[in-house]
Simulated assay, not measured.
Amino acid sequence: MKTYNKIKWLLGISMVFVLIVTTNLIDRNNFIQVKDSVTSLYEDRLVAKNIIYDMSVSIHDLELAIVTDSSFQADNKIKTTKDHLENLIVRFETTKLTKEEEKVFKKFKQGVQDLSAKSAAGSRESIDSTLLQSSQLLKQKLNDLAEIQLAEGGVQMGITKKAVETVELFTSIEIYVLIFLAIVIQIIILYDPKRSSKES
């Protein structure tokens, strides 16, 4: 095989190799985005939503205890609820929080910390009234956190959709470029400068 033919083959194979490596790297990057987005949807949104639900149930149970139980049982329920909420707070902090989430969550944590202080001063009726008001504020913060989960879930779905569309686009482009390169390689391989100079 002559040097000129070797160069033609090398050029043709190199073009295909470069195209395949380039599209593979682009596809790999997009698949990593999809994987990260799906992981975030589960770990940072669905798990967080479940924790928020558990917190809401605890606060609802606390409200029931305040309204229906004796003062001793209500005091015990306040302590149990506060401990349970603090455990859930620790779990919630392991999820990835947005800046808005951090602000709302900080206020929620402060509200949970204040439960003990509010249950210690005043008459039973004023304590119950104050605790019920506090529980309403806590529930509002949980509703705000739940709305953020929904919005952030939509953002992650958008990232996933965009990455998948990019993969589809590059796959289509890759097919057309491969067809074009196949034609170019055929021309390079079949072209013989000696034969064309003889014909002229």
Rank of each mutant, 00 (worst) to 15 (best):
I78Q: 03
A74K: 10
I51V: 13
N50Y: 11
V67C: 05
K79E: 02
G122K: 11
E100M: 04
K79W: 00
F92Y: 15
K107D: 12
Y53G: 02
D128I: 07
V57T: 10
E101C: 01
K103H: 08
R124Y: 11
K107A: 08
T94A: 12
N76Y: 09
D114E: 15
N50A: 12
T80A: 14
L131M: 05
I51W: 01
T81D: 06
K96V: 11
L115Y: 04
I89W: 07
H84A: 14
T68N: 11
M55F: 06
E63K: 00
Q110H: 04
N50M: 07
I59S: 00
F92N: 09
F108T: 00
A117N: 12
T94R: 11
V67H: 08
I52C: 07
K103P: 04
L115P: 07
K79Y: 07
K77N: 10
Q133K: 15
D54F: 04
E100Y: 10
T130G: 06
I66D: 03
S129L: 10
T94Y: 13
T98A: 06
A121S: 15
K79Q: 07
A74C: 07
I52W: 01
E102Y: 01
K99W: 02
E100G: 12
Q113W: 10
L97G: 09
S56T: 11
I127D: 03
G122P: 12
V112G: 05
G111A: 02
T68G: 03
F92D: 12
A121D: 11
V90L: 10
S71D: 13
D54Y: 07
S123I: 05
I52E: 04
S71C: 00
S71G: 05
L64Y: 07
V112N: 06
I52H: 06
K99G: 09
T94V: 08
E102C: 00
E100Q: 11
T130L: 09
K107L: 12
T130E: 14
F92P: 02
L62H: 00
V90I: 14
K79G: 01
A120G: 09
A121H: 13
K118N: 15
K96T: 11
V67M: 09
